[in-house]
C-alpha cells in the first residue's frame, strides 16, 4: 500500500544508519514503552519482557537498514518484532494450551501509559463484545492460531475466524470515527 513514511521515522533511520548514539537513545526513549509493554503483556514475566526489549533494540541498532519507513511506521514495526519474539517465548514456555483469558484482559499492577490516545484505544478494545475481545486477545497476546482460539473457547473454527475478522473491523471503524 502506498502509505507515506513518517518524517521522524525517516530521520531516526538515517541517524541509526549513521551510527548516532543520540538517535539510538531517542528511539529507545520513544518506543521502549510499546516494546516492553507488548512483551510483558505476552510473557507476563518482567525478566523475559526486559530480555525481549533488549533484543529488539539491539537488533534494530545492528541492522537499521532492514526497517523500511515506506512499508510500516517504526512503532508498528518494533511492536511486530516484539510480538513475534513474545510468541516464540510463549510457545516455548506453554506446556499445554492453558489459556489465561482473564490475564490477557487484566492490566498488570504497574503504571500503564495514559495519554488520551491510549485511553481511547483501551476503551475501544474494552467496548468490544466479550466474545470478540476474548478471541482477539487470545490470538494477539497469547499467539494462538484461530484453531487454538476455537479450542480454548469451545466454539467452531468458522466462528473463531469470523470473530477475529469482525472484531478487527469493529475496532477499526471505532478508531477511525475517533480520528485515529
Amino acid at each position: 500500500m502506498g502509505t507515506l513514511p513518517i518524517t521522524d521515522d525517516v530521520r531516526l533511520r538515517e541517524g541509526l544508519i549513521a551510527g548516532s548514539e543520540q538517535a539510538l537513545a531517542e528511539v529507545y526513549d520513544t518506543f521502549s514503552p510499546y516494546v516492553f509493554g507488548m512483551a510483558l503483556q505476552m510473557t507476563r514475566d518482567r525478566g523475559a519482557a526486559e530480555d525481549i526489549t533488549q533484543e529488539v533494540f539491539v537488533d534494530l541498532w545492528r541492522r537499521p537498514e532492514r526497517f523500511d519507513p515506506h512499508r510500516a511506521p517504526l512503532r508498528g514495526w518494533l511492536c511486530m518484532i516484539a510480538r513475534r519474539r513474545g510468541i516464540d517465548w510463549v510457545r516455548r514456555h506453554r506446556t499445554r494450551v492453558t489459556v489465561q483469558i482473564a490475564a490477557a484482559e487484566a492490566t498488570p499492577e504497574d503504571v500503564v501509559l495514559n495519554s488520551t490516545t491510549h485511553r481511547q484505544v483501551r476503551r475501544a478494545v474494552a467496548d468490544l463484545p466479550d466474545t470478540h475481545r476474548e478471541a482477539v486477545l487470545l490470538a494477539y497476546y497469547d499467539g494462538l492460531t484461530y484453531r487454538e482460539v476455537a479450542q480454548a473457547l469451545n466454539i467452531p473454527e468458522g466462528t473463531a475466524k469470523w470473530r477475529l475478522r469482525n472484531a478487527l473491523h469493529r475496532l477499526g471503524e471505532r478508531l477511525l470515527a475517533e480520528g485515529l
Partner: peptide
Amino acid sequence: TADWIGVTAARPPSPGLR
C-alpha cells in the same frame, strides 16, 4: 487496526533497563 491493540499494553520499563 491490530497494531493499535499493542498500544493499549504500553507501559514504561524500569529506568535501569535503559
